[in-house]
Write a protein that binds this DNA or RNA. Structure first.
Lengths: 121, 121
DNA sequence: TTGACGTATTCCCATATCGGAATATACTTT
DNA sequence: AAAGTATATTCCGATATGGGAATACGTCAA
């Protein structure tokens, strides 16, 4: 079984580097497909296909303008990724806590070694 | 070509729901493999394999304690995900800006319709 | 050393996924 | 209506990937 067909999962959609580039390109505002084609320099069907995935997952929204389709970021879903990652915030902020935790771990490791030596004597 | 072999990419590693569960389980502190096996109820080789990917990508770190291996979160890499998502922050915060943007888009759409009607007359 | 325990690795299969090329669809202009 | 422009879809082949089962590896205890 490969990765489950999670085309409903924003995390999965964003796992593809090219899809991230598309989103990054849209960060400045809505843009038609050809805008992306010219900005990124990829074949048009490739752009359309990636946009299709992003749309299905809800990471982008579209509106029609004549024969163009203007795509734009849909913040809602991107927030869910941000929120998930935020769950681990304490592992990179609170520098002091991290140092403390690290020190405690080191101490434990030392203690374990010492005990081991004691046991084997 | 399937998804490029980005086992070096945290985004890709986290695209797998089970791997996310593993990280979520480790959020409370380091834990041996069997701890995860019992907490999550998945076969041990499955846990080990997912941990292996997470380790390779740098999302977790390990230390050995007797015959156990204690895994723990490595915040550094998770921050990179958080930072990336933060890039789109303005799309879900600043409620006022969003409403304003939406209103402007609607206005533009109306204008376009009006112009079209004018043209066809 | 032998056996038990904790964990990692290998082999195999099924399948979702990406890219490329060709083609289809939709809207617009003449 | 016909031609042209903008975008979407389909068909295809190649391949990375996850799960299952069996097995290998490393450490500790007796």
């Amino acid at each position: 079984m490969p990765r489950a067909p999670t085309t409903l999962d924003p995390f999965n959609a964003v796992a593809e580097p090219k899809r991230r580039r598309v989103l990054e390109t849209l960060v400045h505002g809505e843009m038609p497909v050809n805008g992306l084609v010219h900005t990124l320099g990829w074949p048009q069907p490739m752009i359309s296909k990636h946009l299709s995935v992003l749309k299905e997952v809800g990471l982008v929204a579209v509106r029609q303008k004549g024969r163009q389709r203007l795509y734009r970021i849909n913040g809602h879903r991107l927030k869910s990724i941000h929120d998930w990652a935020k769950m681990f915030e304490r592992f990179w902020t609170h520098q002091l806590d991290r140092i403390k935790e690290r020190a405690e771990r080191k101490a434990r490791e030392q203690l374990e070694k010492t005990q081991k030596k004691g046991e084997s004597l």
